[in-house]
């Protein structure tokens, strides 16, 4: 029996974040994980509620990918996104859960290497801690 693949949810801004993902996808690289991407207008639109709901509904890890902070299409959106991620991390810590399950990343449209790096990092986190409610994968 093959072991279940880590389930990762990524909230990507429709500007640089998604562009960087699309660029990486065009390279044809295959991932041994289930990554569900949610396109949002801006990472400033991502709320802690969305991140926690993803974990509640079965995601093992969640990442938010936005523009570079000094080059955000909406100026301060990715800064807002980082703050929201920080708040969720704090909530997870208070509950004794692994805050590493939630991360914020930034990329420029041309950074094709960022998405594979993010996936690798999040997979490592899931392999280390296992799914939220079960054995290690």
């Amino acid at each position: 029996m093959t072991e279940p693949r880590p389930k990762i949810v990524g909230f990507c801004c429709e500007r640089h974040g998604m562009d960087a993902v699309v660029l990486a996808a065009r390279s044809g690289k295959q991932f041994e994980v289930s990554v569900r991407l949610v396109q949002v207008p801006c990472t400033g639109r991502v709320d802690g509620m969305h991140i926690l709901r993803s974990l509640e509904e079965g995601a093992d890890a969640v990442f938010v990918l936005g523009c570079l902070e000094k080059n955000c299409y909406y100026d301060t959106g990715s800064i807002e996104g980082r703050k929201r991620v920080g708040y969720v991390k704090q909530m997870l810590s208070e509950l004794g859960l692994e805050k590493e399950r939630v991360e914020m990343f930034n990329a420029a449209s041309s950074n094709s290497w960022v998405f594979p790096e993010i996936v690798a990092k999040m997979v490592e986190v899931v392999r280390k801690f296992g799914p939220v409610g079960g054995e290690k994968r």
């Binding site: 974990l55 509640e56 997870l92 004794g96």
Partner: peptide, 19 residues
């Protein structure tokens, strides 16, 4: 409303972890 939803989710995650 938002804080309630976040708390509900957070506690459900904690319960899932603790079985």
């Amino acid at each position: 409303e938002k804080e309630v939803k976040m708390l509900v989710s957070a506690l459900k995650i904690k319960n899932k972890r603790d079985g």
